[in-house]
């Protein structure tokens, strides 16, 4: 039963997460509310690992979330379900590429979805922040790391490694 549920849920994510890997985050948040497959804290760990291991982040998170929900088979099924809509839709797009790229209705729809997706990601960020950030020290930590990201646009892996070290140091000292 979990196989079917998992595939339906990740199929939906693959169909509706428009704009790349991190867009899947709010959808995974909804799954954490709906099922006991993983908690939101675990989700934060998954995002970090998916950012710092090879492979597109959205695919990594699907494998990870599926694995957490029910082991290796679930990880594979979740990933396949996630990419299935892409395969079907992109094959259709490839067949009628020129017609699609200038279709005015498609542009309308996407123009409305992008701001909504931004709102979704903002909410997911705030919700995660509420769980992760508990005291003044954490706020300071967040501010410093975020400022560094805005100033030096480096690969996220650098910041994740740095934060891991900072986390250990802060807790030990």
């Amino acid at each position: 039963m979990i196989y079917v549920l998992l595939m339906v849920e990740f199929f939906k994510i693959g169909l509706l997460a428009i704009g790349g890997g991190l867009v899947t985050v709010p959808f995974l948040f909804d799954l954490a509310d709906k099922y006991d497959w993983f908690t939101k804290t675990e989700l934060a760990n998954m995002i970090a690992i998916s950012e710092s291991t090879p492979g597109p982040i959205g695919v990594n998170m699907a494998t990870f979330a599926g694995f957490n929900a029910g082991g290796i088979v679930c990880g594979i099924l979740a990933t396949l379900a996630l990419v299935f809509p892409s395969v079907v839709i992109m094959i259709m797009v490839a067949k009628m590429m020129n017609k699609y790229s200038c279709n005015i209705r498609v542009k309308d729809i996407l123009g409305g979805i992008r701001p909504a997706v931004l709102a979704l990601i903002l909410f997911a960020g705030l919700e995660l922040g509420k769980i992760v950030i508990v005291d003044v020290k954490d706020v300071l930590f967040l501010t410093i790391v975020l400022s560094m990201m805005r100033i030096w646009k480096k690969n996220p892996i650098y910041y994740l490694c740095l934060s891991a070290v900072l986390g250990i140091l802060l807790k030990i000292l």
């Binding site: 934060a44 995002i47 995660l128 992760v132 950030i133 910041y159």
Partner: peptide
């Protein structure tokens, strides 16, 4: 380490 990493994830988002 994951305590630090989670804060970093919030920053990334």
């Amino acid at each position: 380490a994951f305590y630090g990493i989670r804060i970093c994830v919030v920053a990334l988002i």
